[in-house]
Simulated assay, not measured.
Amino acid sequence: MATARLWEFAGVRGAITAHAWHREDPRYIAILTHGYGEHLGRYEHVAETLVRHGAVVCGPDHLGHGRSAGEPVLIEDFADVVADLHTVVESARSDHPDLPVVLIGHSMGGMIATRYAQLHGRDLTALVLSGPVLGRWDALSALLGLDEIPDIPIDPDTLSRDPAIGKAYTEDPLVWHGPFKRALLLATDACMRQIGEHGSLGDLPTLWIHGEDDQLVPLDGTRTGIEQIRGTDLTERIFFGARHEVFNETNRDEILSEVTAFLDRALPAR
């Protein structure tokens, strides 16, 4: 089992905790970006799969998330989060200057990864987006239309068909179980608009995976965003019956195999 090493650096708005999983003789770098309200520690099994596949893996707990500094889930400008992510990428590249870099983002992390790819795509070999917040997110519009954000936590049953995932999520002290904050919602809306205005990812190999029964970030809304960023090398995989956290779904092994098979096609021959 790969063991994560934690390290800390000065982010744009405070100290950021990053995770790193190492292996001998890696053939690529995989950067993970987690979703809203969670932390990268929930991706241990994803990191282990990627390490077995040949990667060194790293990624941050975003500002206001997990072990990183900041008021919980308060992000006022996602440019700050993208800049923190760039620090992690550059650190990994300095340790392994000859290795290709792939970026894997889930949900809000998929939005962050997409914006990063638009700004720094020349430094990436591949991009994987899991249930990304892109295009149209009706829940966002509905919440911003309210005078007061209701204190309604995310329903853990919407995460996965595996009840153990919802139970672990509910009991995780590093997960935020409170309401959305208006500043984060406004920043999310602004970032989604920036992504749409920037447009195509060009020839960057991109894999989009999504649960067909995703009730948190519905498929149809994300599809409008995928069409905005679609480049010349997009692969789409929609998993019937799967909910929001496809990496935690009952068929997670199948889904992670799709990811590693895609990476094998995108990575240069060793």
Rank of each mutant, 00 (worst) to 15 (best):
A187W: 13
I195S: 01
W176K: 03
M108A: 04
G178M: 14
R23P: 04
A164S: 08
G196L: 00
R52W: 11
V82A: 04
E258N: 03
G41H: 14
G64L: 07
T260W: 15
H22F: 07
A190I: 12
T222E: 01
L207T: 02
H39Q: 11
R182L: 10
G135L: 12
P60F: 00
D253H: 06
H53D: 15
R193A: 12
P179I: 06
E148L: 03
R230Y: 02
E8F: 06
Y36D: 01
V128W: 11
W21L: 09
P268M: 15
G145K: 14
D172I: 07
A92G: 06
G37F: 12
Y43K: 14
R5W: 05
D189H: 09
M192Y: 00
V51S: 03
A187P: 00
G199L: 01
I149N: 06
G145M: 10
T33G: 03
T87M: 09
A261E: 13
D138G: 07
Q215L: 12
R67A: 11
A266L: 10
D151V: 11
R42N: 14
D264K: 15
D98C: 05
L129D: 03
D80M: 02
V73Q: 07
V133W: 01
D147W: 10
A261M: 15
R252L: 04
F240H: 14
R13K: 07
S160Y: 11
L186S: 04
L143G: 00
A266H: 06
S160I: 10
L267M: 15
L119V: 02
S94R: 15
G121M: 00
E245P: 00
E171F: 01
A187E: 06
I209L: 11
R122H: 15
G64H: 11
S94N: 15
E44H: 14
A261P: 01
A18T: 00
V259Q: 15
A261R: 06
V175P: 05
P150H: 05
I149H: 07
G109N: 04
G121H: 00
H120K: 03
L50C: 05
R265L: 14
G135D: 01
I229K: 00
R230W: 00
L143S: 04
R182Q: 02
A2Q: 12
H19D: 10
G202E: 02
M111E: 01
S200E: 08
R252E: 07
P156S: 03
L159Y: 05
T170K: 15
P156A: 10
V101E: 13
D213K: 13
V128Y: 06
W208V: 12
T250V: 12
A242H: 04
S107V: 08
C58K: 06
D253N: 04
H210G: 05
F247G: 02
Y116A: 07
E71T: 08
E44L: 09
T250W: 08
G241W: 09
P60R: 03
P218L: 08
G11M: 04
G109P: 05
G231R: 11
S141I: 13
L144K: 11
G110H: 12
G105A: 04
L99V: 08
H96N: 13
T125D: 14
L185D: 01
P26R: 15
D162M: 07
F239C: 01
D213L: 13
A190T: 07
H22D: 15
E90W: 12
G37W: 14
G64T: 08
K181S: 02
H96D: 10
D80L: 03
A139H: 11
D98T: 13
E38R: 08
